[in-house]
Design a binder for these strands. Structure first.
Lengths: 213, 213
DNA sequence: CCTACCGATCGGTAGG
DNA sequence: CCTACCGATCGGTAGG
């Protein structure tokens, strides 16, 4: 097929290439997952058929079932990649020996980095609505992450380092609403670096747009 | 059917009730559209079937085609409701005789109000991916709105009223990323008023979270 | 002449 | 990975 994609065995973070495997060359699970998430993000998870995916892979529909048990397992694995990254960033921030406001800013920067490194996975995560068990499990992990953010915000408010006229929960929602919105427009080909993006988010969120004169 | 919903003839903004019509009582276009958008937001537009919608309405699937030509017309009408509201807010802000930074803050507040008043319609709009002609037309109107916001930001930067270390386009995206994220969690039953929400967004975006000491 | 549907069925496609 | 299928459902339309 002319749509055949380049097959690599790299892990998602771009680590070491996998050792040369015996057997028929082709896709490994990682490559199938990567293409699946592309298709899910283009057509929506519900709108994407296994037929769409097989066409994109250039293999038969049933060939996909060699790698995974079904469409929902692809979704679960993809959502876990996004959630694992965000959760690890949250744990790192929580473990830091710094004031809460510093941990919060660190978390925002790390979350932007995770979002860009795992962009297709996080994009998919942020569109999940909760119509299946897999989606509801992902939403539960998201809520746990949101609670972690809100607790950091609350601590920073108690320290007197951030404004107290907005509830910690609302602050956390708006702050990460801004962070998460990056998936709506960011493209890897964009000239904007992760550092520039994190700087912009932190500048607006912590110091505001207005110039004081 | 036990799922039959309450039928009203009110227009979306809650205007005057429609005059008593002749003919069989039941749904009018407005009521069908309202229920359709509910279903679209629950299952996703692609995932929602006309069968789902007919069940929710308590009428036969073919009965829906009395009101609209098809599923896509429901989508188009719903997206127009959201886009008309946002665009009118943009035009009002543009026409104001005030500094750009004031017009920008007014637009943010008006956009929050439109978002809450037309929540299901704006929610649907923000999930559109561009897979059909109707969706692409909606995305084109969204881009025009984004350009209007970016031009206001640029003008405010030139006036020296907001920070110039972030490009107008990026500023506009992050600012409205925060605004738009409200649809992800806001529920009409929530205790938070539109004014409180708009205040919180403007406080964070224009003055920042950090307390200066 | 209008509004608001019903019961049945079309050709085609979904995930497995 | 492929071929050959399944039970179920898709959006849409016919006449009344």
């Amino acid at each position: 097929m002319s749509e055949q994609v380049t097959v690599t065995a790299d892990s998602p973070g771009g680590g070491d290439p996998a050792p040369r495997r015996r057997g028929r060359p082709g896709y490994d699970l990682e490559a199938v997952l990567r293409v699946a998430v592309e298709v899910f993000n283009e057509r929506g998870y519900d709108g994407a058929s296994m037929e769409d995916l097989s066409r994109r892979l250039g293999i038969a529909k049933s060939g996909i079932y060699h790698h995974v048990s079904g469409k929902e397992e692809l979704l679960r694995m993809a959502l876990d990649r996004a959630l694992d990254g965000l959760w690890e960033a949250g744990e790192r921030a929580r473990a830091m020996e710094e004031p809460a406001v510093v941990r919060l800013e660190t978390l925002v920067r790390d979350a932007v980095a995770v979002l860009l490194e795992r962009l297709p996975y996080v994009t998919l995560l942020l569109r999940v609505r909760g119509n299946t068990e897999v989606e509801r499990a992902a939403l539960a992990r998201r809520r746990a992450f949101d609670a972690l953010v809100a607790s950091l915000v609350e601590e920073a408010e108690q320290d007197g380092d951030i404004r107290t006229d907005i509830s910690p929960r609302l602050t956390a929602r708006l702050l990460f609403g801004m962070v998460n919105s990056i998936v709506e427009w960011y493209r890897p080909t964009s000239a904007t670096s992760a550092a520039t993006l994190a700087d912009a988010v932190c500048a607006i969120a912590f110091d505001g747009l207005r110039v004081r004169r």
